[in-house]
Amino acid sequence: MSQTFTLDDLKRILLEGSGAPEGTGLSGDILDTEFSDIGYDSLALLETAGRVEREYGIELDEAVVGDASTPRAFLDAVSAHLMTPAA
């Protein structure tokens, strides 16, 4: 089964898990904006990664959260896991 993980999926999961930080937003062109600049810290990203793992049935490397500093990097990391066939 082919699954995709889109920016809209990421936004939904961020909002469900951590809410919307005051004074920031997920609207506009945020693909290359640092998560910290849109109000999400490493704890919020850990929560997001956990939700993605449960919802999509994948296991993300711990480095994904540390290395994925922008929505584009997070999307790329999740998409790479989704495209890898299960063993």
Rank of each mutant, 00 (worst) to 15 (best):
M1A: 13
M1W: 14
F5D: 04
F5P: 04
F5N: 01
T6H: 13
L7K: 14
L10R: 05
K11L: 02
R12T: 11
R12P: 01
R12Y: 03
I13P: 03
I13L: 13
L14M: 09
E16Y: 10
G17P: 03
S18A: 06
A20M: 11
P21R: 09
P21Q: 11
G23F: 09
G23Y: 14
G25E: 15
L26Y: 11
S27D: 15
S27Y: 12
D29G: 10
D29V: 14
L31E: 15
L31A: 14
T33I: 12
T33V: 13
E34V: 10
E34K: 04
F35T: 06
S36P: 13
I38V: 00
I38H: 00
I38R: 04
G39V: 06
Y40A: 02
L43T: 06
L43S: 08
A44T: 05
L45E: 10
T48F: 04
T48C: 08
G50V: 06
R51Q: 07
V52Q: 02
R54L: 10
E55T: 01
Y56A: 00
Y56L: 07
G57I: 02
I58P: 00
I58V: 02
E59W: 03
L60I: 00
D61C: 03
D61E: 15
E62D: 15
A63W: 12
A63F: 09
V64S: 07
V64L: 03
V65P: 05
V65H: 02
G66R: 08
D67L: 04
A68F: 07
A68D: 01
A68T: 05
P71H: 04
R72W: 05
F74Q: 06
L75V: 02
D76M: 01
D76A: 11
D76I: 07
V78T: 13
A80D: 15
A80V: 08
M83A: 14
M83W: 12
T84R: 15
T84E: 15
P85W: 06
P85F: 08
